[in-house]
Design a protein around this nucleic acid. Structure first.
Length: 559
RNA sequence: GCACUCGUAGCGCAAUUGGAUAGCGUGUCAGCCUCCGACGCUGAAGGUUGUGGGUUCGAUCCCCGCCGGGUGCACCA
């Protein structure tokens, strides 16, 4: 039940609509004040009365009922207190009904969201900088799906460009089949790095020639390229598996090569294309932006051209209601240009394209530099976090069965959570000290809380679980938190911020731990109270697991 | 130079999008395991929300100026 609209329905203020009242209803800063509040200041002008008086009038005229137990005016606010039993029953029964899918809604029914994320480059290993787009996109995918949207996860592979000519050239000169098979993506990357260090004029020319050969469909060049692509995909799929990330499409840049021409033709038809310094561009000066280059002066396409074709293809293929691009804010201008060009082409769906921008990752000694070896590989971060989890488990829970499995869940969870906990726009300075610290506001805290709850439920050993008693303060604070989950999911989707869910999980875990310290559960004073508290414990567990699952993080049985 | 963006406790970040006494974690200090998991909990200390104006009953949030950091600004992605 939606208490805000319930209250709005029953509060009468002349000249103010229900919607306005519903929008104005807020949560008091201190639960001691009440559960919901209505600040009356903005109504004072319309009614030409003091807010204090309005609040008093609203409180006095509020019809008492079984849902709201109190309406009290305080300094221009009306503070409402809900009937705790009724509220608690509503929250708990919804959680019990929806289970692991708690927070579901019909908001997205019949709507499709495309999400472009992770987008790996062929022949380049994942470093810590790729983590954000991967887990942000993966989480948004789950969040939108929870809200009933049909979701399409797209890995827009970087599988086209002059770098592959260089790679083939390097492989021909220094490479070795067995070595590449054995060394995998890092061996390939080493070849590419070496090319950039050592290539002379002749090699550059050779590389250009190989690029041409790939494009013209030369068998040998393409076989090599496909092998590099294959090795890359095998490698990233291993990482995606550990991070619980999935995609519905791996259509990358090369996929759109034969789909650009119609879009270019349409640009021409609409008189948007013009020549400038030898290149074909869309002039955006009117909009305060540099021109959008469609074709280079040598006639070749650019990544923007491929992005343009991809947008049209996605609209055609998926008929999306929204298409998200989870890409770092460095590309702000590029997406602004891209979206503007599509708008200028008269496509009303340009408004449905969203650049979900996030901050950059650097290291303590400055920006990452692959060439200088100043780089943190994602797989190293994962394995170090999992090893750390293993160490802690060995120390704190030496008798634990399936230690490796639990360490994987805990360690990987910490990596993912660390990338999702703060607002996505914030820059991150990566350090192992921080990444390996599992204290405080982390997934480990939430997982620990779950393990604690599970342990309590196990200890109850089949005792009666259920029923309802008037909740005390700690119990009710927890219940309110549990009830806030669906709203948090909606908020996360609306702002494209999985951090809302991550913070929700920590906040709710804190509330549970307070409840746990304050209230005896298994050893409650009466059987009824124990049954109720066990019910509350189980609902918390369901909710925390639901929240973590939206982030792609699991919950171990014990840890 | 222009555009975008960030600036909140020593450090890392929140603040329900304009609401009440600005919160949480970490770090420091002092406590709590012969009561269900101490990877936990309680308390103390720590703030002129970068700065100066403006709008408003009310500003961390909106507007303008300034200071500081980051990013981008034509054929790379």
């Amino acid at each position: 039940m939606d208490y805000k609209s319930y209250l709005a329905e029953r509060v009468q203020i002349d000249g103010v609509t229900k919607e306005e009242i519903a929008e104005t209803i807020a949560l008091p800063p201190d639960p001691a004040l009440g559960d919901y509040s209505l600040p009356c200041f903005k109504f004072a002008k319309i009614l030409r009365t003091s807010p204090v008086r309005i609040a008093e009038a609203v409180a006095a005229s509020y019809p008492a009922d079984g849902v709201i137990s109190e309406a009290k005016a305080v300094n221009g606010y009306v503070n409402f207190r809900v009937d705790r039993k009724g509220y608690a029953e509503g929250v708990l029964s919804r959680i019990e009904k929806e289970g692991p899918l708690y927070g579901s809604s019909k908001e997205g029914e019949g709507k499709t969201v495309c999400i472009d994320y992770s987008s790996v480059n062929i022949a380049k290993p994942f470093h810590i900088g790729h983590l954000s787009t991967t887990v942000l996109g993966g989480s948004l995918y789950r969040i939108f799906r929870r809200l009933g949207y049909h979701t399409v996860g797209i890995n827009h592979l970087g599988d086209y460009g002059t770098q592959f000519g260089k790679l083939i050239c390097a492989y021909r000169r220094w490479g070795d089949r067995a070595e590449v098979e054995k060394g995998g993506i890092h061996a390939i990357n080493a070849l590419y790095v070496r090319f950039n260090e050592e290539a002379d004029e002749a090699m550059e020319n050779e590389a250009r020639e190989y690029s041409r050969l790939i494009e013209s469909g030369d068998r040998e060049a393409n076989e090599l390229f496909d092998r590099f692509k294959d090795i890359t995909l095998r490698y990233v799929k291993g990482i995606y598996e550990r991070l619980h990330i999935t995609f519905d499409s791996y259509a990358g840049e090369s996929f759109y090569l034969d789909k650009m021409q119609p879009v270019i033709d349409e640009l021409k038809e609409k008189g948007l294309l013009e020549e400038s310094r030898g290149a074909q561009v869309v002039d955006l000066e009117k909009y305060g932006m540099p021109p959008f280059i469609v074709l280079r002066s040598d006639g070749a396409s650019l990544y923007g051209t491929r992005d343009l074709a991809a947008a049209f293809y996605r609209k055609q293929t998926y008929d999306f209601d929204k298409c998200l691009y989870v890409v770092a804010y460095q590309q702000n201008l590029h997406f602004k240009q891209l979206f503007k060009v599509i708008e200028l082409m008269g496509k009303d769906w340009a408004k449905d394209l969203v650049h979900v921008a996030y901050g950059m990752v650097s290291l303590e000694d400055g920006a990452m530099a692959t060439r200088k070896g100043r780089v943190v590989w994602l797989e190293d971060v994962i394995s170090r976090c999992v090893n750390k989890a293993k160490e802690i488990l060995a120390e704190k829970n030496p008798d634990l069965a399936n230690k490796d499995e639990v360490a994987e869940t805990v360690g990987v969870g910490a990596v993912v959570f660390g990338a999702l906990y703060n607002s996505k726009i914030k820059d991150i300075v990566f350090s192992y000290d921080k990444a390996l610290n599992f204290d405080g506001e982390t997934s480990v805290y939430v997982q620990y809380t779950c393990a604690r709850a599970k342990s309590v439920l196990a200890k109850a050993d089949g005792a009666k679980e259920g029923g309802m008693l008037p909740p005390g303060d700690a119990e009710f604070e927890l219940i309110k938190a549990l009830g806030a989950f669906p709203e948090a999911v909606v908020q996360a989707a609306k702002t494209y911020e999985p951090s809302v869910v991550a913070r929700y999980a920590v906040d709710t875990a804190q509330k549970f731990n307070k409840f746990y310290i304050d209230c005896k559960i298994v050893q409650a004073e009466s059987e009824e109270l124990r049954a109720f508290r066990l019910r509350l414990t189980r609902a918390t567990l369901t909710t925390l697991a639901a929240a973590l699952s939206l982030l792609g993080i699991g919950v171990p049985e014990k840890m």
